[in-house]
Amino acid sequence: MSGLEQFKDRNVSQNYYKVQIEPYPKTGWEKFKRVLKRSIKLELFVGLKITLMEMLRFNIHTVQYPKEKLPIGPRYRAVHRLLRLLESGTERCIGCGLCEKICISNCIRIDTKVDEHGRKVPTEYTINFGRCIFCGYCAEVCPELAIVHGPDYENASEQRAHFALKEDMLTPLDKLKQQQEYPGFGAPTPVADQRIKKTPLAY
């Protein structure tokens, strides 16, 4: 993984340089002079030299994808996860329906009921991944940190129905121990406390 971080550097504009383009020749004589100049300077062979040097240097940049993978950003937005409460193991979702409301591609659907403890719980929670655009609004709006974006981006499947169900996204009960407080998209950033400000209405 170590050699691949350089590809994450998106800040390339500092290395831009401007190409000097000579004015185009107007008359026939100028055109002829340009042809002659280019022929004598052997400009074509400069290109040949560059490609040959690249071949001999053998500085390959291919990432052989299934074998090696580029590191993804810490707040990458891939397939959603539904989390549970760490102590009791019950679902965090309180069935408020905010994610369903805010979803701009209308792909989230929640059915809720009031259970025996008087708590509102979702009976059904589906996200249509065929329509989801992974904008992240649902994770941002969730007041309970119940729905987050996980890092699993390899979600190819033979059928549309796959991944769309609650059981696939929800942390299974037996793996509850492994569930950690999620730092990725949906959770507050580590510096959230410093960034917090009073709302203008307070004063």
Binding site: E54, M55, F58, N59, I60, H61, T62, Q64
Partner: peptide
């Protein structure tokens, strides 16, 4: 050859 000249690996 094209792959090597373009810093790729080609069919692998």
């Amino acid at each position: 050859v094209l792959a090597f000249m373009q810093r790729r690996l080609g069919p692998m």
